[in-house]
Design a protein around this nucleic acid. Structure first.
Lengths: 235, 235
DNA sequence: GCAACAAAAATCGTATACGATTTGAAAAAA
DNA sequence: TTTTTTCAAATCGTATACGATTTTTGTTGC
């Protein structure tokens, strides 16, 4: 019963995605340190391959590198939070308009399925899942356009916004955006492009308003348990 | 009179931008080989620092890496060309709507200035400049939103589209999109958001239609002269 | 007991080194 | 002459090594 686990040579992109997913899903908290040697051991490679990957994540703005100090999961400032949200209002207006024009019954079904899962996650008090699913809804919306480039852009924006939410959400986070998503689906089903666009803008504004931008949570400490599912033994 | 030139330690991001600009401005043609050692010599660093930068450009889709063969300036397929153009229609619809809502007189002036420069470049038969300015118009439009995230996204899309144009433009490239930009400005000046959005979609469709997707130009050969302005002497 | 300083440990950033793979050319066969 | 085969040169991908900087620890003084 040797450790085995990942061992069979992950590609750079796979490692990138692994770290990226860990951040998006909240298994790596904002501010957490991403040591090169440490990550290298986790994935069974040398830090020579980790470094470039960290820089790539820096381009996606979900990791920051402080010279001679190392890489950390990004902790977006209030200003950045506002900018990203504003960007989403601009970009996703185009997305929901296109989606409204192209949506087919099975697309609406997929969206409603996600909302249902969101409800389930909320009622089960699984904050992590609810978090992830909220973003997934917007990604699925982008997928309706059938355009991979658009889907990737939305995914990046959602990832950054997830960090914002992780940092600034109010302790007693009420189910803020649930009805928001449901009514978005209704507008799309109506085929009313203008109404859908309007609803999207307000939905994103609502999400922003539900945050407490006054104080961001302090950086936390531990790493490593975030990759438990990989089965890589430490040391 | 030693070589001097760049010598004073460029940062990774500066090198990245240098290569990126060279590609966008057409000094590096699609398909051109980007050797690691070669680029390292150009910038006076080891290939250890070049490699990650090439991977970052890969994420931007303006460079492709073929395993064990090296990095090349991307040569987007017809399918990718269509996808990027469709993405621009979706994204830039949101952008021009936001820009129309926010545009101030000085913004319109900046846009008209770019169109004027485009005319000048065309009449001077400076194809390269005209090319760059066409993209610059859309970037300036994005800048009107005052949102850096949006501006970066549009810049990336424009960069990819520039490669598409470089590959598929017709030999006798007529001034296709000149009036397109002028009428976009008029719609913005009117404050008619829907008309502006409609004009943008058709403008991008026109650009696409002006291409000859039947045959893409073959890969060309030489490198190195693209970075002459840096003053780095080759060996 | 706490603050300040000094030394040691850990970590980062880059260059160099080396095995693996591909490319190109030279030589041999048809 | 053309094709195939073989071998050398060039290039890529990764690990290791080493100087530079930061962080931590341990000690001293107050």
């Amino acid at each position: 019963m040797t450790v085995s686990g990942v061992k069979q040579a992950l590609t750079d992109s796979e490692i990138l995605r692994e770290i990226s997913d860990a951040i998006i899903e909240g298994r790596l908290a904002p501010g957490e340190k991403l040591g090169q040697d440490e990550l290298g051991k986790v994935f069974g490679v040398s830090k020579t391959r980790i470094r470039p990957i960290l820089h790539r994540l820096t381009d996606q703005k979900i990791v920051v590198i402080e010279p001679m100090r190392g890489a950390f999961v990004a902790r977006p400032s209030v200003e950045e939070a506002r900018t990203v949200n504003a960007a989403r209002q601009i970009i996703e207006e185009g997305v929901i308009r296109a989606a409204t024009r192209m949506a087919r019954p099975k697309d609406l079904k997929a969206l409603r399925e996600i909302v249902a899962q969101e409800h389930e996650a909320r009622s089960s008090h699984m904050a992590g899942s609810a978090h992830r699913l909220t973003g997934e809804f917007h990604c699925e919306l982008a997928r309706i356009t059938g355009n991979e480039v658009v889907a990737d852009i939305v995914r990046d924006l959602v990832a950054r916004d997830n960090l914002v939410v992780a940092l600034y959400q109010r302790p007693n986070a009420a189910g803020c955006s649930l009805d928001g998503h449901a009514s978005l689906i209704d507008r799309i089903a109506d085929g009313d492009e203008d109404a859908a666009a309007h609803a999207m803008r307000h939905h994103l504004q609502d999400v922003m308003a539900s945050l407490d931008l006054g104080q961001r949570k302090p950086p936390s400490k531990p790493l490593a348990s975030a990759f438990a599912h990989l089965g890589a033994g430490p040391k």
